[in-house]
């Protein structure tokens, strides 16, 4: 009887030791996977961060140019019906060395993309589907941005809305 108990005890120990060994092995392998994944992730994050920062710069540029030209055309006076035309004509005169700005200027001078209307509060400029495309070292980031800028009656920027199309 005592021998049987001892045997049971040993079998239990072997199983427990196996559980411990397998758990440690699992933890170590999981840890290794995590460390290698994190290293790759940090690399990818660096690239993504630069792409994202360049895209943000291009977006800010598009907003700033649209606000500048829109505001200038409101202050210049003239018929409200010709605001969109005048906005597109002025935008064509702008030149930029900034990468990716060509897509913006092509869009901002396309009649189907630009709506510039008079509202109760002032003026509202809508530009649809502005391509924000950044290509860098084999990586590419692409967004399509819809922009709405609300101006007051004097051409001061009141609110800016941006929305990404899918």
């Amino acid at each position: 009887m005592t021998g049987l108990l001892c045997m049971h005890g040993k079998r239990g120990d072997v199983a427990f030791v196996l559980v411990v060994v397998v758990t440690i092995a699992a933890i170590l392998s999981a840890g290794m996977v995590m460390v290698t994944t994190q290293r790759e992730f940090v690399k990818q994050t660096g690239e993504m961060s630069r792409l994202s920062s360049d895209a943000a710069t291009l977006e800010s540029y598009a907003i700033a140019v649209s606000a500048m030209v829109g505001s200038s055309e409101i202050r210049a006076g003239g018929k409200n019906e010709t605001l969109a035309e005048r906005f597109m004509a002025k935008s064509r005169e702008q030149e930029s060395l900034l990468a990716g700005s060509r897509g913006f200027y092509e869009r901002v001078t396309a009649p189907e993309a630009v709506q510039f209307i008079s509202t109760n509060e002032g003026y509202s400029l809508h530009i649809s589907a502005i391509p924000i495309i950044i290509v860098r070292e084999g990586h590419k980031m692409q967004r399509i941005m819809n922009l709405q800028i609300n101006f007051d009656g004097q051409g001061r920027v009141h609110k800016v809305y941006k929305e990404y199309s899918t």
């Binding site: 920027v157 609110k159 800016v160 809305y161 941006k162």
Partner: peptide
């Protein structure tokens, strides 16, 4: 957390502007 926000983002005028985005 790094997935980021999507959809409509509203900004007040000039908040987006650094000095080099001024005309």
């Amino acid at each position: 957390a790094t997935k980021g926000a999507q959809g409509v983002i509203a900004e007040r005028g000039r908040e987006y502007g650094n000095s080099f985005y001024q005309p």
